[in-house]
Simulated scan of single mutants.
Amino acid sequence: MPAPARFLVVLDADSTLIRNEVIELLADEAGRGAEVAAATEAAMRGEVDFATSLRSRVKALTGVSTDAFARAIARIEPTPGVRELIAAVHERGGVVGVVSGGFHEVLDTIAPDLGVDVWRANRLATSEGALTGEVDGGIVDATAKAETLQSWAADHGVPLALTFAIGDGANDLEMMAVAGLGLAFNAKPTVRERADLVIDAVDLAEVIALLPR
């Protein structure tokens, strides 16, 4: 059983925890970066169903070598202030989670390096050292993100009133709605409109002032 915590902070990964969209980095390997970037933007604005969009974007990765994961990781830029925020959460007895529509194959390296306590993401199916163009298992969509936040809160004995959800895209809205405080960060217009608070500066250290002391 995980140790109790005073509060829980859950972040999206792409364009929140990190400045990149990992699927676009992987799509660059297939020469389809611009096409996938446009599809990602539409999904984040909420114009298309996230799961349907993700499957079509992953299909564009068919045949990409699994070596691309290391190259993608090398290009990732942590968001300014992320290490300061995570350190502050830990200093005050909180837990940091990341739940992502992106991929475990990258997050499994990035998350522990940044000090994240728990994380969940999609997995990419592979065969003979290359991506098959399929998602392996269920897709982490908006509903899964909200359920994950609630599950982590229960695991650590944190009431939902003491949970924070930070995200930028439409698939973050459900977890922002169930959290005690939903923060739009580097966010699309629909997310800014529905968030409890909007963080305008692209600096996660801005969140520290909102944490319990």
Rank of each mutant, 00 (worst) to 15 (best):
P4G: 10
A5N: 07
L8E: 13
V9G: 13
V9A: 14
D14M: 01
S15M: 07
L17Q: 08
R19E: 15
R19A: 15
I23H: 09
L25S: 00
L26R: 06
E29D: 03
A30N: 14
G31Y: 08
G31A: 05
A34Y: 05
A34N: 05
E35K: 11
E35M: 14
V36L: 06
A38S: 13
A39P: 02
T40M: 00
E41F: 12
A43I: 09
M44F: 11
M44H: 10
R45C: 02
F50V: 13
A51S: 15
T52C: 04
S53P: 08
S53Y: 04
L54F: 04
L54K: 07
S56K: 13
R57A: 06
R57G: 07
A60E: 09
A60H: 06
L61M: 13
G63R: 09
G63L: 09
D67A: 10
F69V: 09
F69G: 02
F69A: 04
A70T: 13
R71I: 04
I73Q: 05
I73N: 02
R75H: 05
I76G: 07
P78F: 12
T79E: 11
T79W: 05
V82Y: 12
V82P: 13
L85M: 14
A87G: 13
V89Q: 10
H90S: 12
H90I: 11
G94S: 05
G94H: 08
G94F: 07
V95A: 08
V96C: 04
V96R: 04
G97M: 10
G102I: 00
G102W: 01
G102R: 00
G102T: 03
G102P: 02
H104S: 13
H104K: 11
L107H: 07
P112M: 07
L114Y: 02
L114Q: 01
D117T: 12
D117F: 02
W119D: 01
R120H: 15
R120A: 11
R120K: 15
N122D: 09
R123I: 01
R123A: 10
R123V: 06
L124T: 06
A125W: 03
S127N: 08
S127C: 11
G129Y: 02
A130I: 09
L131F: 14
L131K: 09
G133Y: 04
E134L: 07
I139C: 04
D141E: 10
D141V: 00
T143M: 06
A144C: 08
A146W: 00
L149F: 00
S151P: 00
S151K: 10
A154S: 08
A154W: 01
V158K: 09
P159G: 03
L160I: 10
A161C: 03
A161M: 03
I166P: 01
D168T: 11
D172E: 07
D172I: 00
L173M: 14
L173D: 02
E174F: 01
M175F: 07
M176A: 06
M176H: 02
A179Q: 04
L183A: 11
N186Q: 10
K188Y: 13
P189K: 14
R192Y: 03
R194F: 04
R194C: 10
L197D: 08
I199C: 15
D200G: 15
D203H: 14
L204I: 10
A205D: 06
E206D: 14
V207H: 00
V207Q: 00
I208E: 08
A209N: 09
L211K: 03
L211G: 02
L211P: 06
P212E: 07
R213T: 13
